[in-house]
Design a protein around this nucleic acid. Structure first.
Ligand code: MN
Ligand code: MN
Ligand code: MN
Ligand code: MN
Lengths: 220, 220
DNA sequence: ATATATTTTTAGACTAGTCTAAATTTTTTA
DNA sequence: TAAAAAATTTAGACTAGTCTAAAAATATAT
């Protein structure tokens, strides 16, 4: 039996809200993320449970079954590969690709995914720094730090973002921060935790806590 | 208002069944092409008429309105561009791309289509020799001849196919006939209209009337 | 021109996915 | 630990797209 667009979206969202510890996801959280009402979520949860894709006990929240996890990871693989295609081959900005990939991720055909993967040169990360699951369904999340955890004086590499909103990505573009940028934390203001950082040894700029909280970095 | 996958498929099929003279299309013909029942077609026709996409009078068949035609041509443009992508960039065979393109053609985003078109180098024809409508919606069908109309002794260029079925395309592959092949008609058998043809000045082979009827050719 | 056959539409029903309003369960708070 | 608040589920309804069976319209053949 094939899964519908809607079912795939639910599975992907459950995967993401569940986090790496596979925590229970609440009905309301899903309603929020799917932009539907809680009642609709409950209906869908019953359906996904019947199909063996989630563990669901009324009032207790849900987690993915092994099968559900597999499906979710396949969709994530497709989403991220298409994003790479859109940015690397078609010249889209990293702030423009999410919604399109949200549709492309549901195109069936295993062959298509594997040919696309090969065409792109088997990329390991998508344009936002998120890891791309391999063909077998292995997804290893690198454990990056958040910029707020970096000490004054440290130099780190910008590796990814937590917020994928176009407005945030465009803000980074305007600040000259991209994947791979070297960020040196020069000063942290006690009052509002805003930081003064130097990018690639060049320009120094101030970034708010809001921005710091959404930047994933790594020791160089 | 956005059109659904289903609506887009109907419009595309009406366009194709309507032919270049824009003839009326019957309910039964649509039921056949959409693999649904006539009753379902009637329901959809009422909906498309309400949206101003088709001219529909009960029992009289349908034709596309100007708006409907525009939508249909956009879908066809996307379908054919994606087919070029699948064959030229991903290495699919021309017999493998139809079903995938049938899904990809419904991905929205004007920008995507135009960037894809540019990436592919603004191709004029798809892998089956069908013309690709331009960005403005102009679709000019070249007037090819069918191989059955070619006289003995004539040399023609293979330009396209009428049947897009994988089995037919694979048959052509096995016969060594591809777009651009030079076909010289050597002999036509009176009894069954099968033909003896020479491909690219090399091998001579026999092709049935069934095959000849589905080959589009052009004077060299 | 009338009877028969074919095509098309209508009537009523079903599934997927969604909604609102009401009922129920769980959690929090006093 | 009982009352209040919050979260979740149930009940009943709606739309898109489909179906079968029956009715109506059109076309074909005596
Ligand atoms: Mn999606
Ligand atoms: Mn991404
Ligand atoms: Mn389609
Ligand atoms: Mn084609």
């Amino acid at each position: 039996m094939q899964n519908s667009f809607t079912e795939e979206n639910y599975l992907k969202i459950i995967h993401s809200l569940s986090g790496r510890d596979g925590a229970e996801v609440s009905t309301n959280a899903l309603a929020e993320s799917t932009s539907t009402r809680a009642a609709s979520v409950t209906d869908m949860l019953r359906k996904l449970a019947d199909k063996g894709l989630i563990h669901y006990k009324k009032y207790q929240g849900v987690t993915l079954t092994e099968t559900g996890e597999k499906v979710a990871i396949k969709v994530i693989r497709k989403h991220r590969l298409w994003e790479v295609f859109l940015v690397e081959k078609l010249g889209f900005g990293w702030d423009e690709v999410h919604d399109i990939a949200e549709e492309l991720e549901h195109i069936p055909s295993e062959v298509l995914v594997e040919k696309l993967d090969a065409f792109l040169g088997h990329p390991r990360f998508d344009p936002h720094g998120d890891p791309i699951p391999d063909a077998k369904g292995n997804l290893t999340e690198p454990d990056y730090r958040i910029l707020t955890d970096v000490q004054v004086g440290e130099k780190v590499l910008m590796m990814g973002v937590l917020d994928h909103a176009p407005s945030f990505l465009q803000h980074l573009d305007r600040s000259g921060i991209t994947l791979g940028s070297v960020i040196e934390v020069r000063e942290i203001n006690e009052y509002d935790k805003s930081a003064s950082v130097q990018i690639n040894g060049g320009q120094t700029l101030f970034i708010s806590l809001e921005v710091s909280k959404n930047l994933l970095v790594q020791r160089r």
